[in-house]
Amino acid sequence: MKLVTPILRIAPLAALALALMAGHAEAQERVSAEVIVVLAKESAGTVDPALADIPALQRAPFNAFQSMEILDRKREQLREGVDRDVELPNGRTLRIRLQRVMPDGRYRVQVSINRPEADAYLPLLQVVTAPGDPFFVAGQSHRGGTLVIGVRVGRASD
């Protein structure tokens, strides 16, 4: 019991200190995010080589598109609970918010796509994503094609 008693006394204090440290570190964390806007068309064309790092765009159903052109690629720094807006080429705004960093290292992210004074195209999307793994929002008509928006939060090494 000589060893056990001090441990029992220290354990609650250590637990509290760890919790406070974890909460402080989390509150300070900034997470990088990338939003890539692609115009995809079913007509013959080329696929931008810069999309090679997103193999998912070469799989079904995206492989139905014969051409893919990167219209925009933006990097943002996200903080928990803070909105970041990205203007889309069709006049809408993509709003992204890091809701929280989860205990397992994944991110819970909320996305919406709206146009001022118009019904929201996508009022709310809540996604849990691993660092560096993208998710996609597709379907908006634009310039004879379809917009495919990829969002990547954090990096695989984050």
Partner: peptide
């Protein structure tokens, strides 16, 4: 990545 919630309006 996985979707937790979506509203299509």
């Amino acid at each position: 990545s996985s979707v937790e919630l979506v509203e299509f309006g």
